[in-house]
Deep mutational scan, measured.
Amino acid sequence: PTIVLKVSPEELKALEKAGVEIEKIEKNEDGELYITLTPEALKKAGFE
């Protein structure tokens, strides 16, 4: 199962800087950012 999270541009930068593997980055028509994370990326980021 993949996880989709709504993030701010600042959060996205912080995640990328931390080396979190982001599978997909999407922006909706309201300009909101959503990222898709794999279970492996979540484990690496410390989420179980």
Rank of each mutant, 00 (worst) to 15 (best):
I35E: 00
G46V: 02
E21L: 06
F47Y: 06
P39A: 14
K17D: 10
V4L: 08
I22M: 07
A14F: 15
E21T: 07
K17C: 10
V20M: 04
E32G: 09
I22S: 01
A45K: 03
E26I: 10
E48W: 01
Y34C: 09
A41C: 04
N28K: 11
L37V: 14
K6R: 10
F47A: 10
I35G: 00
N28F: 07
L12I: 11
E48I: 05
G31W: 02
P9S: 11
G31C: 06
K43E: 15
N28T: 11
G31K: 04
Y34M: 09
K6L: 11
L5P: 00
F47V: 15
A45T: 03
E23F: 12
T38W: 02
T38P: 03
E10W: 06
D30H: 12
S8V: 03
E11T: 15
K13Y: 10
D30F: 14
F47I: 15
G31V: 01
G46T: 01
K43A: 15
L5Q: 07
K6V: 09
L12R: 02
E11V: 15
T38L: 04
I3N: 05
V7H: 00
G46P: 02
L5E: 01
L37A: 09
S8I: 03
G19Y: 04
I3L: 06
K24R: 13
V20P: 00
E32R: 05
L42G: 07
A41V: 03
A18C: 15
D30M: 12
E29Q: 11
N28D: 12
G46F: 03
E16P: 00
I25N: 01
D30Y: 13
I22N: 01
E32V: 07
V7S: 02
E23Q: 09
A45G: 11
S8W: 04
E23R: 08
E16W: 08
N28C: 14
G31Y: 03
L15M: 10
V7D: 00
A41E: 15
L12S: 01
E48M: 02
F47E: 09
A45N: 04
V4F: 06
Y34R: 11
E40S: 05
Y34K: 07
E26K: 04
I25T: 06
S8P: 01
E11Y: 15
K44Q: 02
L12H: 03
G46K: 03
V20Q: 01
V7I: 10
P9L: 09
T38Q: 04
E16F: 12
K17S: 12
K44R: 02
A45W: 04
L15S: 00
E10G: 09
Y34G: 01
L12M: 07
K27E: 11
A18E: 05
E16Q: 12
I35T: 01
E10L: 14
L37K: 00
A41F: 04
E23V: 11
V7W: 01
F47T: 10
L33W: 12
K6I: 08
L42R: 07
L33R: 01
I25Q: 04
G31A: 03
P1E: 10
A18L: 15
V4I: 11
E26F: 12
T2R: 10
E40P: 05
L37N: 00
T38G: 06
I3F: 08
E48T: 02
E10Y: 05
G19R: 06
S8C: 11
D30S: 11
T2Q: 09
P39G: 11
V20C: 06
K13G: 09
K6P: 03
E29R: 12
I3W: 12
V20H: 01
V20T: 04
L37P: 00
I25D: 00
K6F: 08
L15R: 00
V20F: 04
T38M: 04
K24C: 11
L15T: 01
L33F: 12
E40M: 03
K24I: 09
E29C: 06
V7P: 01
G19M: 06
D30G: 10
G46I: 05
T2V: 12
E11P: 00
L12C: 04
V4N: 06
K27D: 05
V4M: 09
I3M: 10
A45L: 14
L5N: 01
N28S: 08
K27I: 13
A41I: 03
I25V: 09
L12G: 01
A14W: 15
A18S: 09
E29H: 10
L5D: 00
E16T: 10
E16D: 05
K6G: 05
L33N: 03
P1I: 12
E32K: 06
E32C: 11
T36R: 04
A45E: 03
K13I: 10
S8T: 10
L15K: 00
L12T: 01
E16H: 08
P9N: 08
L33I: 14
A18W: 14
E23A: 09
P39T: 14
T36P: 01
E48Y: 01
G19C: 07
E48P: 15
I22C: 03
E10R: 09
G46R: 04
K44V: 02
A45Y: 04
L5T: 05
S8L: 07
E21G: 06
G46N: 03
I25C: 10
K13F: 10
L5S: 02
G46C: 13
E10C: 15
E21W: 08
K44I: 02
L42Q: 10
E32N: 08
Y34W: 14
L15I: 14
K27V: 13
P9M: 08
F47Q: 13
V4P: 03
V20I: 14
G19V: 02
G46Q: 04
S8M: 07
E23C: 11
P39S: 09
I35C: 04
P9H: 09
P39Y: 15
I25W: 06
L5I: 12
A18F: 10
V7Q: 01
E11A: 14
E16M: 13
T38C: 06
S8Q: 05
T36F: 12
K17Y: 09
I35K: 00
Y34T: 10
E40G: 05
A41R: 02
A41Y: 03
P39V: 15
G31L: 04
L42T: 07
K6C: 14
E40I: 04
E40K: 04
E48C: 04
K43C: 08
L37T: 14
K27L: 12
E23T: 08
A45F: 05
T36I: 05
A18G: 09
E21Q: 08
L33Q: 04
L33V: 14
E32T: 13
E29Y: 11
P39I: 14
A45D: 04
I3R: 10
I25Y: 06
F47C: 15
I25M: 07
K6Y: 07
K44L: 03
G31M: 03
E48N: 02
E26N: 07
K27Y: 13
G31Q: 03
E21N: 07
K44H: 03
E29G: 13
K24M: 10
E21R: 06
A14V: 15
A45R: 02
T2S: 13
E10F: 07
K17E: 08
L33K: 01
F47S: 08
G19P: 01
K13C: 14
K24W: 10
L42K: 05
L12V: 05
V4K: 13
N28Y: 07
K27T: 13
T38V: 03
A41S: 07
K44S: 02
E10K: 10
A41L: 02
L37W: 01
L12Y: 06
E11Q: 15
K13N: 10
E11S: 08
K24Y: 07
L5H: 05
A18N: 11
P9I: 14
L42C: 13
D30R: 13
G31T: 02
E11W: 15
V4T: 11
V7M: 06
E32L: 11
K6A: 07
P1C: 15
L15Y: 13
K13W: 08
K43F: 05
P9R: 09
E40V: 03
E40F: 01
D30P: 03
L12A: 03
E32M: 11
P1G: 13
I35P: 00
E16A: 08
L42F: 15
K27N: 07
D30I: 13
A18Y: 13
T36N: 03
E40A: 07
E16R: 11
S8D: 05
A41P: 01
K13H: 10
P9Q: 10
E29K: 12
L42V: 14
K6D: 01
I22D: 00
Y34F: 12
L5R: 15
T2Y: 11
E32D: 13
L37E: 00
E32P: 04
I25F: 05
E48V: 03
V20G: 01
L12N: 00
I3V: 13
I3P: 02
V4R: 14
P1M: 13
T36V: 05
V7E: 00
I25P: 01
V20A: 08
K43S: 15
F47D: 10
D30V: 12
K44G: 04
P39R: 14
I35D: 00
I35S: 00
I3H: 11
E11R: 14
P39F: 15
S8F: 04
K17W: 07
K17Q: 11
I25H: 03
G19E: 06
N28Q: 09
K13D: 10
I22T: 02
A41M: 14
V7A: 02
E26R: 07
L37Y: 02
I3D: 02
E48D: 11
Y34I: 14
E11G: 12
E16N: 11
E48K: 01
K27F: 14
K24Q: 08
K27M: 12
E23M: 07
V7L: 05
I22H: 02
V4G: 04
P9T: 12
S8G: 08
Y34P: 00
E11D: 13
L15H: 01
A45V: 05
A18H: 09
I25K: 06
K17V: 11
E29I: 09
A14D: 05
S8K: 07
V20S: 02
A14C: 15
E29T: 10
F47K: 13
D30A: 10
K6H: 12
L37S: 04
V4S: 09
K24A: 12
G19W: 03
T2L: 13
E32H: 14
L37Q: 00
E26P: 01
I3Y: 11
K17A: 12
G46D: 10
L15V: 04
E10T: 12
E21F: 07
K13R: 12
I22W: 08
E26S: 09
L37M: 12
I22K: 00
K6T: 05
S8N: 08
